[in-house]
Design a protein around this nucleic acid. Structure first.
Length: 414
RNA sequence: GGACAGUUGGGUGAGUUGGCUGAAACCACAUCCCUGCUAAGGAUGCGUACUGGUAACGGUACCGAGAGUUCGAAUCUCUCACUGUCCGCCA
C-alpha cells in the first residue's frame, strides 16, 4: 500500500510518480479526499467516545456512592446514539478508502524510465553471445516431440489446457535445475526454505495479489485459501505482522515451489509450448532489508540470477522495465531475458523487483530502528524460472538431429 | 470428522462474582551505575496502531477474529478460526 500521509502532503509529486504507471490523477484526488474524510470522521468519533468513557466512569462512582443516576443515564444514552451514528459514518469512510487504497499500485522509483509497455523497456546489457547455428534451430516443442520429453496432450487430459507432463530426461533435468539453483542461492547466502504451496487471503493481500488480482489465482473452494502464484507470497509473508530486530536484517531467503496462475487475460498468448503454463516450477529469492540497504541487495539479486544463466552458458540480457510495464507492487524491476534461438528472440526468465516499503506496509513487516518501528523493504526475484530454463537449454543446446546436450554444470545432478 | 480443554504484551504467566487492569509478577531486551574478571549486583525504561500537540503531555482502539448484551467487557452471550489432548482416518 502507498503511504497515504505522503500522498496527502505531496500530492502533485505523488500524482506525477503514479502517472508513470498510468494512474489517473482523478482517482488519486478521490483517494486523497477519502483519506481526509476518514480522518475527520474518526476524530469526531473519538471525541464522543472519550465523553462516553468519562461518563461511564462517573456512573460507576455514583453507584458506589449510592447517588441518583437517572439524569446521568439520560445523557449517556443520548451520547450513545450519537456515537452509533458517527461510527457508521467512520466505517463507511474506512471501507470506501480501503477498497481504493488497496487497489493503488506502488510508486515507481524516479529512475524508472517512462513508457507504456514492454516496447519501452530499456536494455541495460547483454551477457554471452548467441551461438551461431549451421542448421535451422528448432523450437522447444518440436525438440520435445523428437526426444519424447514433454507430453502436452496427456497434461491436458489430466487437468486442462496449459498443463503438461515431463518425461524421462526432461523430468530429471527439471529436478536437476531446481537443485542447481537452490545450491547456488545457498552459496550466495540465501537460506533455503520449504513452504506451504497454499496460502490464505491475508497473506495474498500482504504481497499485493489481493484484492485486485483475484481472477489470476486458483482458489480452494469453500475455504479462505489460494494456490500460490509465486513463492514470493509465502517467503515475504513469513514475517507478516512481525517486528524484527535491526541486527537480523537483511534476511535472505530462497525456496523452490510450484506456482499456479490462471493466466486470465493471456488468452491466445504463448498457447504453444511450455512458456506459459498454469503450473510451473520456480526457485525464488526474497530479501527483507533495512531501507538503506535494499538498493545494494537488489544488485546482488540481479547479479546472482545473471550468474546462474552464465554458468549454464545461456545468452541473456538485462532489461529495466518502464513505468507502464512495471508490476503492481514494484518500485523498480529488472528482467533477465534468455535467448531462445528457436523463437529467435529474448524471453523473460527472471524478474527481480524492489517493492520498497509497499508490501511491508500491507503485510505490517517492521523492524526496531532504535526506539522506533520502521517498515522494512522487501525484494523478490526469480533465480530462476525452472520450466523456461528447461526450454532455454533445449533450444540452445540442440544438435541438428534434435538431440540435446546437457550443460556441464548440471551433469553432476543427473 | 467427533468429544473435551484452551487462545492475554518479545517469552512464561496473573486477572474471568463486569468498572479502581492496557493489563501484576518473572524472564528477555535497552540505557546508566557499580564491580573487575567472564560471571554477578543495583537504577531506570520497555506492547501495537491511529490521532492532537513544537514539546511536555493527552485522546481513541486493540487481551485469537467478528457480532451482541450493558452506562461500562480481557471478564457475560453467539458465530468463526487456531492450538492442545483423546477417538476416528491416513502418507
Amino acid at each position: 500500500m502507498i503511504d497515504l500521509k505522503y500522498l496527502q502532503k505531496n500530492f502533485d509529486e505523488a500524482s506525477a510518480k503514479l502517472s508513470k504507471k498510468g494512474v489517473d490523477t482523478e482517482i488519486l484526488e478521490n483517494l486523497k479526499s477519502l483519506f481526509a474524510n476518514l480522518k475527520e470522521a474518526n476524530s469526531s468519533l473519538e471525541i464522543a467516545k472519550a465523553e462516553q468513557n468519562k461518563m461511564s466512569k462517573l456512573f460507576g462512582e455514583y453507584i458506589r456512592e449510592k447517588k441518583d443516576i437517572s439524569e446521568l443515564k439520560l445523557k449517556v444514552d443520548a451520547n450513545k446514539e450519537v456515537i452509533a451514528k458517527l461510527q457508521a459514518t467512520a466505517n463507511e469512510a474506512n471501507s470506501a478508502l480501503q477498497s481504493i487504497a488497496l487497489a493503488m499500485p506502488n510508486f515507481p522509483d524516479d529512475s524508472v524510465p517512462e513508457g507504456t509497455d514492454e516496447d519501452d523497456n530499456v536494455e541495460i546489457k547483454k551477457i554471452l553471445e548467441p551461438r551461431i547455428f549451421d542448421f535451422e534451430p528448432k523450437e522447444h516443442w518440436a525438440l520435445a516431440e523428437v526426444n519424447g520429453w514433454i507430453d502436452f496432450e496427456r497434461g491436458v487430459k489430466l487437468a486442462k489446457s496449459r498443463f503438461a507432463v515431463l518425461r524421462g530426461d526432461a523430468a530429471r533435468l527439471e529436478r536437476a535445475l531446481i537443485s542447481f539453483f537452490l545450491d547456488i542461492n545457498r552459496e550466495k547466502g540465501f537460506e533455503e526454505v520449504y513452504v506451504p504451496f497454499i496460502n490464505n487471503s491475508a497473506m495474498l493481500q500482504g504481497t499485493g495479489q489481493l484484492p485486485k488480482f483475484e481472477d489470476d489465482l486458483f482458489k480452494i473452494e469453500g475455504e479462505d485459501l489460494y494456490l500460490i502464484p509465486t513463492s514470493e507470497v509465502p517467503l515475504t509473508n513469513l514475517y507478516h505482522d512481525e517486528i524484527l530486530t535491526a541486527k537480523e536484517l537483511p534476511i535472505l531467503l530462497t525456496s523452490y515451489t510450484p506456482c499456479f496462475r490462471k493466466e486470465a487475460g493471456s488468452a491466445g498468448r504463448d498457447t504453444r509450448g511450455m512458456i506459459r503454463q498454469h503450473q510451473f516450477d520456480k526457485v525464488e529469492m526474497v530479501a527483507i532489508t533495512n531501507p538503506n540497504e535494499s538498493e545494494a541487495v537488489f544488485k546482488i539479486m540481479v547479479d546472482n540470477a545473471s550468474d546462474i544463466l552464465t554458468r549454464l552458458g545461456l545468452p541473456h540480457r538485462a532489461v529495466e522495465l518502464c513505468g507502464g510495464d512495471l508490476g503492481f507492487s514494484a518500485a523498480t524491476t529488472i528482467d533477465l531475458e534468455v535467448w531462445l534461438p528457436g523463437q529467435n528472440k529474448y524471453r523473460e526468465i527472471s524478474s527481480i523487483s524492489n517493492t520498497r516499503d509497499f508490501q511491508a506496509r500491507r503485510a505490517k513487516i517492521r523492524f526496531k530502528d532504535g526506539k522506533k518501528n520502521v517498515l522494512v523493504h522487501t525484494l523478490n526475484g526469480s533465480a530462476l524460472a525452472v520450466g523456461r530454463t528447461l526450454v532455454a537449454i533445449m533450444e540452445n543446446y540442440q544438435n541438428e538431429d534434435g538431440s540435446i546436450e546437457i550443460p556441464e554444470v548440471l551433469k553432476k545432478y543427473m
